[in-house]
Write a protein that binds this DNA or RNA. Structure first.
Lengths: 144, 144
DNA sequence: AAAATAAAGGATAAAATTGTCCTTTATTTA
DNA sequence: TAAATAAAGGACAATTTTATCCTTTATTTT
């Protein structure tokens, strides 16, 4: 459904959210380890998220990645859009370039409803909204 | 959402369904042209669908691909499973190998509902069920 | 100022997906 | 039986995605 980059990006953001909720910072190695993702690939993704301002970072000793209170309100969908572009939002399930309400592919109408639900979910849930459950270990970002 | 192979596979099956509803056969070149897909790639996909018995073919002059009445009842989901494997059906949105009801990733519960709707749609709609609309040109498999 | 730390950035590699080409096999028609 | 037709199948190429490595830059601590 989403690319690996987006999967890692969402998990990383969730992990950072929990770990830096009181001004701390956290490094890539720890993040990657805890979301079960390759370190360097994760680094590149976080870099991208920083450039796009969904995430912040500080260099040097005691540096690392962190989320400010605005960042915590980032809906999942924004991460998806940032890392996967609009391919999820604006492309036809059957890949038709010009598929639309007036010019529908055979599954257009059926999928419209579903897509709206997914988008709704992606916009409603923010990175910060999973913190409590993650802290209580009701939710997991990594499983062995 | 689905691979190109699956997109082409579904479109090809729909096209064949319409074109061979009275015992005719249709060749790859015509199919590929009408679903706007690369010819050889389409050929490979159709070969695969034949091997898995979702589709039938005949060699030689007047040969080509066709669907028998059983084939017409193939739900879209079966094509997805055949070409994309279970990656859509049995994998976690965040890529967690062991994600489950008891061990949920942060978006597991939210996505469960949505996934069920998608699967429902994929199982309910069959290849043959789009014929009338395609014939009436209310639905399109190709758009310039 | 020097050393250490950690992200930024660029180059490269590996793997997977998508796409092309060519030969073989089966079938039909003349 | 020969020629023509069309799928089957395998080899190969291009592209995209995923992953690794190394150097540079910024910051902190000593």
């Amino acid at each position: 459904m989403f690319s690996k980059a987006t999967e890692y990006g969402i998990k990383a953001m969730m992990y950072i959210a929990v770990k830096t909720r009181n001004g701390e910072r956290v490094g890539v190695k720890e993040i990657a380890k805890n979301i079960d993702a390759p370190v360097h690939f994760t680094a590149k993704i976080l870099q991208e998220l920083c450039r796009k301002n969904l995430l912040h970072s500080a260099k040097g000793p005691n540096g690392g990645f962190y989320l400010d209170s605005a960042d915590l309100k980032t809906p999942l969908g924004k991460i998806v859009k940032t890392l996967d572009g609009d391919r999820f939002y604006n492309t036809c399930v059957l890949g038709l370039k010009a598929c639309s309400h007036k010019n529908p592919c055979p599954v257009h109408h059926e999928f419209k409803v579903i897509k709206e639900k997914i988008i709704d979910m992606l916009e409603k849930n923010t990175i910060g909204s999973f913190n409590t459950e993650l802290i209580n270990k009701n939710f997991f970002l990594k499983m062995k």
